[in-house]
Design a protein around this nucleic acid. Structure first.
Length: 590
DNA sequence: GCCGTTTTCGGCCCGACTGTTTTCAGTCG
């Protein structure tokens, strides 16, 4: 784990301890924010310590600066250790149990001596929780369920699994009578790589339809169990273990609800702060004048009885706050609100900007489709070019090509290129970057190709120095056009190479080597924050599917999602270049 | 604890739901 992440964990734990100790809530919010900032950061926090610029980073103040400085110097924080010593460490994971919050945890600890999840289970089994003030029978049952849920849920689900499930539910919802509009909200709409649960918003014309729809939703065939159902809200868990929360609102309030539940929480906190500066208040029902809103009568699950300034669409809400529309993928409180105020939001890349795929496989190595089939599939997507990049010889399990087979394959790609009209096929290879940075083929072989992707596949547990030197060496090869899945990470499965990105970016930008956003799930490598730092450093990116079948080419959307979260525009991506410009990009490096 | 084109003090986002309660506390997103 990198130093940044170690520190982020420290601040996260620090914040949790403060919550349990009942310290003023804003203190723990402040430290949680420091944790988030550290997690999102793409440079080494050591750099800021050395330059003395720590306090220039938003969210880091005097206290957290001291903690970070001491930690960088000594590998520990005495402030943290002092506080941590006052609370049993087993209490912190208890915060992840649904239904258990800091107040209840403190109560269980002080009144019943419960100091860990295991002890909590035991205490419940032995009936030792009875007689606590504020904890009744139902609460105990809720905690019990929370404990089993936590065991089952474990980690967050990847977007590649969650999105298809959510979209199927959406289609079913749209067919229910009375549903005027239905959209995915939450982190899934922001296209985060993993999600905790799915939020779906439905707009209705008639309030009387709301409970009917809430109930119909709980009867969908893929529902495994119902967690709760109210007037305007239901919560279910699908057979695949995905929690889905449905909220139903009058269609007039749809935009405000969609905005509110899309988040992120941090983005919304900033927006609501802005609203207040204008004498307005923003909530899930709409944007209101504070004076109107305070006088209005309010009922649960119904909009307040006063006229909103904006509520029908998200665009109206942003507009009324004096902002242009902010794309969901940007709503992470990573500078998008400032950019919106300054009218400098990026025009994000979209599917229509992609002119071709530059990394895919055929039956020549481990793909399932032929050159012709892949070419036809690419044509059907409207592509102008496709690079066929089968594996090199080290990838024995993937039927990697020897130099002789590669030459024959390249000749076949070129014949296909002559035969198939309307698309340019590039004869390429995905060559292995070996552990020491050597490529799997020497220059004489690579010189025969039109296009080269170089990727790490083995030795993915190297330290930063070795791993960085390895990738740098590949970047220096004049035949390498793209570094494929640069870190080798797999979501929820493998950390990947701990690269020193600043050095990688400098070399990639200087040599004209593109860095890949691999669209294949669970790769999605580079990640959003790293890709954003890459374009900030002047690098070109390449968004590719690494498809092993014709269907695989459709995964491009997942790579585009990452790119959009990274503030990427078409001019940052070589797949958006017209063919002629792409060929110039390749030629320039040789 | 952090922050500041009204500021170095005094704010810091908001509502629904649940459970345990007669008016509120805690949790969640």
């Amino acid at each position: 784990m990198s130093l940044n992440h170690e520190l982020a964990d420290l601040f996260k734990t620090f914040a949790a301890i403060m919550e349990i100790k009942g310290e003023p809530v804003f203190k723990s919010i402040a430290f949680s924010k420091v944790a988030r900032v550290l997690n999102d950061m793409t440079f080494d926090i050591r750099d800021a310590v050395e330059k003395g610029t720590l306090e220039d980073i938003e969210g880091i103040g005097k206290s957290s600066r001291k903690i970070i400085e001491e930690f960088v110097r000594t590998g520990k924080s005495s402030d943290f250790e002092d506080v941590a010593a006052t609370v049993p460490p087993g209490l912190i994971p208890m915060l992840q149990v649904p239904g258990l919050g800091p107040k209840t945890i403190a109560l269980l600890w002080k009144q019943r001596g419960v100091t860990s999840i295991d002890e909590l289970s035991k205490a419940i089994a032995e009936g030792r929780l009875e007689g606590l003030k504020g904890i009744g029978e139902k609460k105990i049952e809720q905690i019990k369920q929370g404990l089993t849920m936590r065991e089952q849920a474990g980690r967050r689900m990847g977007i590649g699994e969650a999105l298809p499930i959510a979209e199927a539910l959406l289609q079913q919802l749209r067919k229910i009578k009375g549903v005027k509009q239905a959209e995915i909200a939450g982190s899934l709409r922001r296209r985060k790589e993993t999600i905790g649960d799915v939020d779906v918003i439905v707009g209705v014309a008639k309030p009387s339809d709301m409970p009917v729809i809430a109930e119909a939703f709980t009867k969908f065939p893929q529902v495994d169990r119902v967690l709760g159902q109210g007037e305007s809200k239901s919560s279910i868990v699908t057979e695949s273990g995905l929690q889905v929360d449905l909220r139903i609102v009058p269609i007039e309030n749809f935009g405000a609800a969609l905005q509110y539940f899309t988040g992120s929480k941090e983005h919304n906190v900033k927006l609501r702060g802005m609203a207040q500066e204008h004498g307005l208040t923003l909530n899930e029902w709409g944007l209101y004048r504070i004076s109107d809103y305070e006088k209005a009568t309010k009922e649960p699950a119904r909009p307040p009885a006063c006229k909103p300034i904006a509520s029908r669409t998200e665009a109206e809400v942003y507009d009324a706050l004096g902002l242009p529309y902010i794309e969901p993928e940007l709503r992470e409180d990573r500078g998008e609100i400032t950019a919106a105020i300054e009218k400098s939001l990026p025009v994000l890349i979209s599917r229509a900007d992609i002119r071709g795929d530059l990394h895919c496989h055929t039956t020549a190595s481990d793909g399932t489709a032929t050159i012709d089939q892949m070419a036809q599939a690419a044509l059907a997507l409207g592509y102008e070019f496709l690079a066929i990049t089968d594996h090199s010889k080290s990838q024995v399990v993937a039927n990697g090509l020897t130099a002789e087979r590669l030459f024959a394959h390249a000749a076949e790609i070129r014949r296909a290129n002559d035969r198939i009209k309307g698309i340019r096929l590039l004869a390429g290879c995905e060559v292995d970057i070996l552990a020491d940075g050597h490529l799997d083929f020497d220059d004489a072989v690579l010189a025969e190709l039109d296009f080269v992707v170089a990727s790490p596949h083995v030795a993915l547990r190297q330290d930063t120095e070795k791993a960085t030197a390895r990738i740098l060496r590949a970047i220096e090869s004049k035949y390498v056009n793209v570094i494929g899945h640069p870190t080798g990470r797999l979501i929820n499965q493998r950390e990947g190479l701990p690269l020193d990105f600043a050095r990688i970016f400098t070399a990639a930008a200087a040599t004209g080597t593109a860095l890949e956003i691999n669209s294949g799930y669970p790769r999605l490598d580079l990640t959003d924050t790293v890709a954003r730092a890459a374009i900030g450093a002047g690098c070109m990116l390449s968004i590719n599917t690494d498809a092993h079948s014709t269907d695989g080419l459709n995964w491009i959307d997942y790579g585009i999602n990452v790119a959009r979260r990274a503030w990427v525009t078409p001019r940052h991506v070589i797949n958006c270049m017209p063919l002629k410009k792409l060929m110039q990009f390749i030629a320039k490096k040789r």
